[in-house]
Structure formats: C-alpha cells, structure tokens
C-alpha cells in the first residue's frame, strides 16, 4: 500500500527499558520489515529507572509511519512511543564534528564561515581545524556543504535528538 508521492519524514522518540538487546530489537524491526532509518540516537536518560531514549528519524507513507509506531509500541521493553512530528511541536538538534584541512585563503574562509554558523574550533593544527557545530540538521547540511570546497576531509554527526516544546514531559 505504498504511495511513492506521499513520503513523509518523521522524528519518533521511544522510551525503552535499558535492557540487553533492546537496541537490536528496534534496529531489527526496521531492517526486518523494510523500513528506513535516516538517523538514530540512543542513550540512557534515567539511571535510577534504567530507561533509555531512542530518537529515530524515518521516512515513509502515512500508513508506513503508523505501522512503524505501532510496531515499536508492541515491543515488550518499550514504555512509550511519541511521534514528535505529528503529536507535538518539537525542537530538533544535531551536533557534528567537522574536520577541514588547508592553508591560505581557504583556511581563512573556513574560519570566517564557522563564525557565521556559531561553530566552535575545538582542535587546530597549522593546516587543519576541527569544528563543533550544533543546530537543526539542515543547518549542519548547509555548513558541511560550505566546507566541502574549502578542504573538508572528515565528518562525524550525532544524528537528531528532539524534545517537545512546552511544559509537558514525554
């Protein structure tokens, strides 16, 4: 029942019990049923309760997105599934570490642009920078695009983390 013209991008937060294999269950669900993962982040968020939060960015038709949420919710160690794209207004952030090498005019240009993006220099040599940049994924895409002709050699991205706006918890 896929309708190719109807593809949507959703950010889904999943609160899980931090037990062995839980991430494998989530990833196996996506690969086993042929769903897409654009990015996935995971870390423990409550040490006392042993709960982890997984943030998944996925794409699919509305029917597939509904299936993904229902399939996630039926995994036994899952506490809660929230579609941050539909259910709430959410803020999304991603962090990237970006290595640029070069000298002369290109090096100066890279540093000037990093300032415009509020990227921080966290490592430097005579012919390289490592920038730390945070923001919405398209901002990071834009920054990487600008660095490419200036000597971009390495990128490491965290993937999206997201949280609902307003006073309500997940």
């Amino acid at each position: 029942m896929s309708n190719e013209s109807n593809i949507e991008r959703h950010t889904i937060a999943v609160l899980v019990d931090n037990e062995a294999g839980v991430l494998a269950r989530v990833i196996g669900l996506f690969s086993g049923r042929g769903y897409n993962i654009e990015s996935l982040t995971v870390a423990e968020v409550d040490q006392a309760e042993h709960t982890s939060r997984i943030t998944i960015v996925t794409v699919g038709t509305p029917m597939v997105i509904e299936q993904i949420k229902a399939q996630l919710a039926r995994l036994v160690p899952v506490h809660k599934v929230v579609d941050l794209t539909v259910d709430t207004k959410a803020v999304e952030r991603e962090m990237a570490l970006i290595k640029v090498t070069g000298s002369g005019e290109k090096r100066v240009e890279a540093l000037r642009l990093s300032d415009a993006f509020r990227a921080r220099v966290i490592d430097t040599t005579h012919n390289s920078f490592v920038f730390e940049v945070t923001g919405a994924p398209d901002k990071i895409d834009a920054f990487i695009g600008l660095m490419r002709p200036l000597g971009l050699v390495d990128v490491s991205r965290t993937g999206v983390v997201a949280i609902a706006r307003g006073p309500e918890a997940m």
């Binding site: 029942m1 029917m63 509904e66 299936q67 229902a70 399939q71 919710a73 039926r74």
Partner: peptide, 8 residues
C-alpha cells in the same frame, strides 16, 4: 494487536 489495524 494495534499494529494489525491499518497494516494492509
């Protein structure tokens, strides 16, 4: 099973 509804 909620995932059965609207699956197919």
């Amino acid at each position: 099973d909620a995932s059965s509804i609207n699956k197919i």
